[in-house]
Design a protein around this nucleic acid. Structure first.
Lengths: 251, 251
DNA sequence: CGGTGTCTTGAATACCATCAAGTCTTGTGG
DNA sequence: CCACAAGACTTGATGGTATTCAAGACACCG
């Protein structure tokens, strides 16, 4: 949560890497020169570009901002969102610290959506062409990126079925459990009844689940009244995971 | 529509290739030995496997059916479907003739959904490992497959926003226009007010749009009453494309 | 010929959106 | 530091869209 700056920590001593760097794709696959776990391969020095900080609620990047760069989020939460002309919005995915903004950027010149910062976000750009070159040489990197790509696809398909067939209650519960699960995989939860950082506003939940903020508020209140979850001070606790899972899958 | 069997036509004379083969990924990329447009590369002979026919409304393949094979549909329409325990279903995508069932199969051992035949379906299996090997050697093949993969992703994201923010009327109109567009790209429509083969039942439209069959029927009747479309005898005509596009995007 | 699948139409109902008012928090400039 | 504005959340009342339930027409097939 209050992890030190990735760059500073890494440059000082690899021992003190924050969680977000330890679970980062750039670190895992050894192409982030700033927090290399092994002596970086030859290409590494070329592919790491500038690090940038964006305040909360601002746009991280647009369609045309990315010429030859793939961003990875070092710190903070972001969302990829589609904004329609009428003012309505749909959040396609939340991007957690340590995640590549989208593996689609590795093949396509342009993302088909906006990336918005939810909290303050620090991200690092990598050269797409250099990364592609590395993938051609390194079968394991290719393998890892492919798996990440497939994972994104599975998440998208799950969102489709959630929006298509599930009720408001189920959708919200599933979103919270999904985030809890991903955070846990990255070692970013504490305790057995999981406690985690939770910077989302209710309107983010609304945009992700296709509901109105008003209705999200009502459903969350219901959850609290039933002792299922607790949200306070930008942190979320799932008080009764077993029962909450049942609510998330009622068909 | 009533195209001759791909295999027979191809083996007789490449001149008489049916539309579905001319627009097929296996033909375009030269890895389908049965309808090769150029002398096939060395690997080709190994990667083409059996051809199979499945009657309408049956399952083409399940999660565990595919050990090391990637199917391409030679003839007929299919759908990738998620079936939930409660009996509700969500169609993630329609698979048109000439399309690989899912590019995800190139990296993952198992699809995360069922493939169901809508019409009678004939498909051909290719060896995944052989295809991967070809992709490593042939940059253009890699490029083409990547583009197909990205296209699938864009389609999924559009479905997400359709289900999240759009009304029933918009969703149905967009589905029809989307299919018309894809068929047109494959040269499978006739006329300026496009006429096309349309084997979908209303319950397919319902499962794809997250609506009930009853409501789909009502919306389609409304479209007909307004002179927007005509559906009869398993064929669809978009009578007023301009107005229909406006209805498909009302925000 | 019955059986199954498909489509249509109407009536009643449920779920979620919209509208509105008010509280509380957060941020900002004087 | 305070005053004010903007954003975030809550709660209740009302309304619309799509679901559910039900019944009937029609086509196709064994």
């Amino acid at each position: 949560m209050n992890s030190p700056c990735a760059v500073c920590a890494a440059e000082a001593d690899v021992e003190y890497l924050p969680l977000t760097c330890r679970a980062c794709q750039g670190y895992e696959n050894g192409f982030c020169a700033f927090v290399a776990k092994a002596p970086p391969p030859a290409a590494t020095t070329q592919i790491a570009q500038t690090v940038t900080t964006v305040p909360a609620r601002r746009i991280v990047c647009r369609e045309r901002d990315l010429q030859d760069s793939v961003p990875i989020i070092c710190h903070g939460w972001a969302a990829s969102v589609v904004a329609l002309s009428g003012g309505s919005r749909q959040i396609l995915a939340f991007v957690l610290p340590g995640e590549m903004i989208s593996t689609a950027l590795l093949v396509a010149t342009r993302p088909h959506c906006l990336i918005e910062a939810i909290t303050e976000v620090r991200y690092r750009l990598f050269s797409r062409t250099a990364l592609q070159e590395m993938m051609r040489r390194d079968a394991r990197l290719m393998e890892n990126i492919s798996r990440a790509w497939f994972e994104e696809r599975v998440q998208a398909d799950q969102l489709i079925t959630d929006l298509g067939v599930r009720s408001a209650t189920e959708r919200i519960a599933r979103l919270l459990l999904n985030l809890a699960d991903r955070l846990k995989q990255r070692g970013m939860t504490q305790g057995e009844a999981p406690v985690m950082e939770f910077p989302l506003r209710q309107h983010h939940i609304a945009d992700a689940t296709g509901l109105t903020p008003v209705h999200v508020s009502k459903v969350l209140s219901e959850f609290r009244r039933n002792g299922l979850i607790e949200i306070s001070d930008r942190s979320l606790t799932i008080l009764d995971p077993a029962r909450f899972h049942r609510i998330a899958d009622m068909r």
